[in-house]
């Protein structure tokens, strides 16, 4: 039952965050790149003001998988950075925390580029 609730929360919060994104696509002229930047920066800000942390606690992957979760990760990295290294940590923190995800995206992206072939959509 706990397991089910965990998945349900992830589904609801993750779905809701995507639902907001869909409204931005359908009702504004924002391009996907702008929307993604908005999510990451919003994730950083919401973490900074203490709102995103509790959401992650409650929804797990529902809050960490959307790109705002990437912003949360960056902000958490910075918090830890300045705790351990002071001001220098503000510089080293973001990528320390995000290193795994960014590196995976570069590595698997490159591999896809090496083996993949572009597809006609028609």
């Amino acid at each position: 039952m706990d397991m089910f609730m965990e998945y349900l929360k992830a589904f609801l919060v993750g779905g809701a965050l995507c639902l907001i994104g869909q409204q931005l696509i359908d009702r504004t002229k924002l391009t996907p790149a702008r929307i993604l930047v908005g999510y990451v920066v919003a994730g950083v800000i919401l973490t900074a003001v203490g709102l995103y942390g509790p959401l992650v606690e409650w929804a797990g992957a529902g809050a960490t998988v959307p790109l705002s979760g990437f912003g949360y990760l960056l902000a958490k990295g910075v918090e830890e950075g300045i705790r351990e290294h002071g001001l220098l940590g503000a510089l080293t923190g973001p990528f320390t925390a995000a290193a795994g995800g960014v590196m995976a995206a570069i590595l698997f992206g490159l591999l896809a580029g090496l083996v993949g072939k572009s597809h006609d959509k028609s």
Partner: peptide
């Protein structure tokens, strides 16, 4: 739409698709 754009998978897709396209 946003269901595949907003999750981290959309971020990975944008990198992989560009890597493939501009090879």
């Amino acid at each position: 739409g946003a269901g595949t754009l907003v999750p981290i998978t959309g971020f990975a897709n944008s990198i992989a698709a560009a890597a493939i396209e501009f090879k």
